[in-house]
Design a protein around this nucleic acid. Structure first.
Lengths: 110, 110
DNA sequence: TGGCTATTTGGCTATATTGCCAAATATAAT
DNA sequence: ATTATATTTGGCAATATAGCCAAATAGCCA
């Protein structure tokens, strides 16, 4: 693979990898509705605060979210709303998978 | 997090995780142009055949690609072309990141 | 100042992923 | 049948990730 092509895909993979976790997808979905602080997300996810904080830092590092300190809290928000379009594409794959499984079941039954 | 919400995000994460690797993104991009067999992809990627084969099985397992045996080879193709729309969203994030870095540099220079 | 709340960081263990090699399998061609 | 070609599988070592606890940090308020 040519070096510049490799670099391009590494950059993309970095961002996609940041999304590739259930809790982080949950966070992305919540932030697409409204900005949230760490505490709010922690309560929703029901994990350790430090764990959620680390997830947020992964997302921030990838450039998917931004944070803003206001009063006592830090509010996170989604940086590129187009991310949610992607989630809908993932849903397409999922339903496509489900259809195929149903087809396979039909075939088994004969 | 409610159990059904958790399940939904786990399913999504599984698919996204399958995309989250430079070589697999390269494969997805190539397959979006035309179907390819393992050998072709192996030559392009310049890795061990077994490595590429395993990447393909990850993609297949997630339902992102299908394979079809023809003659001596197995041809892989992309199952949901909308995946490429997502890649363009990732590009948005990347260029948005780049812009921000440039802004930061400007600020430093004063 | 000193305590309070919100968040991040360090450290650790458990688990998952990657990529190579060698070996197994499958199919085509001679 | 034997050989050659294409692909997958098993095994292993190196590396990366996840999540918890404890401790550190930062800003607010009395």
């Amino acid at each position: 693979m040519k070096s510049n092509v490799k670099t391009r895909h590494e950059a993309r993979a970095k961002i996609i990898k940041a999304m590739a976790h259930p809790s982080r997808l949950f966070i992305i979905e919540e932030l697409s509705k409204r900005e949230c602080c760490v505490n709010e997300l922690t309560e929703m996810i029901e994990a350790d605060t430090s764990t959620v904080s680390k997830h947020l830092s992964v997302l921030k590092n990838a450039g998917l979210v931004t944070d803003e300190k206001r009063g006592n809290s830090i509010f996170y928000s989604l940086r590129c709303p187009c991310i949610m379009d992607f989630v809908s594409c993932v849903e397409d794959v999922l339903s496509s998978n489900a259809k195929e499984h149903i087809e396979i079941l039909k075939c088994c039954k004969g």
